[in-house]
């Protein structure tokens, strides 16, 4: 509630012409927006450009934010759509041979993993899923968004989101176990 008030104040300042105040919103949300774009695009350069597009669109349409939903949900929706549109553009522009080449996965260490390792293995596993599936999983488990909020962001129906969540969870787990020789739980969740 306090954060919502805080947002309302920031947005009011931006709308009254203080464009620099937008920097605070960018500071708060850049990693979150970039993560959504990375999940969809799987390419740092494209994700950076899509994030930039998303923030600029958000700035231009800020007066259209009515406060009916959380600001983060509104911003995620813009980011998701920017990334999807860039992905479509990329699909028409790139040669299929230019598709991402997966890095060979390093052998899993025998004890717990550090944060960067966890991120590495998780990303590898997420890349085995479709961009939509990995985005939905990320929004649900990392950003802790509800099914209703994911419906708003992706434009899918609630039942569709639930089915995809269920399926992608299974697929993620299978991918993690393949990467980590069936020891996903002990390695990834060990607080080393």
């Amino acid at each position: 509630m306090e954060q919502r008030m805080d947002h309302a104040d920031l947005i009011q300042r931006i709308l009254s012409g203080e464009s620099r105040a937008f920097g605070e919103l960018v500071q708060r949300y850049q990693h979150l927006v970039y993560t959504v774009c990375m999940r969809v695009l799987r390419n740092a350069e494209d994700a950076e450009e899509a994030s930039q597009d998303a923030f600029v669109k958000a700035f231009r349409n800020l007066s259209g934010f009515t406060g009916g939903s959380k600001f983060s949900t509104w911003l995620y929706t813009i980011a998701y759509r920017s990334a999807i549109s860039r992905a479509r553009q990329r699909r028409t522009n790139t040669d299929p041979l230019d598709e991402l080449v997966h890095q060979p996965v390093a052998a899993a260490p025998s004890d717990g993993l550090h944060r960067t390792d966890v991120r590495h293995y998780l990303n590898q596993a997420l890349e085995k899923l479709t961009p939509e599936e990995s985005t939905i999983l990320s929004l649900h488990y990392l950003d802790e968004l509800s099914v209703e909020e994911i419906v708003t962001i992706t434009g899918l129906s609630a039942s569709n989101v639930k089915v995809r969540l269920f399926r992608s969870r299974k697929r993620l787990e299978a991918a993690l176990n393949t990467e980590l020789n069936g020891e996903a739980r002990s390695l990834l969740l060990n607080d080393a």
Partner: peptide, 8 residues
């Protein structure tokens, strides 16, 4: 697991 990996 997702929280441990964090945001990009």
């Amino acid at each position: 697991l997702f929280q441990k990996a964090g945001h990009e």
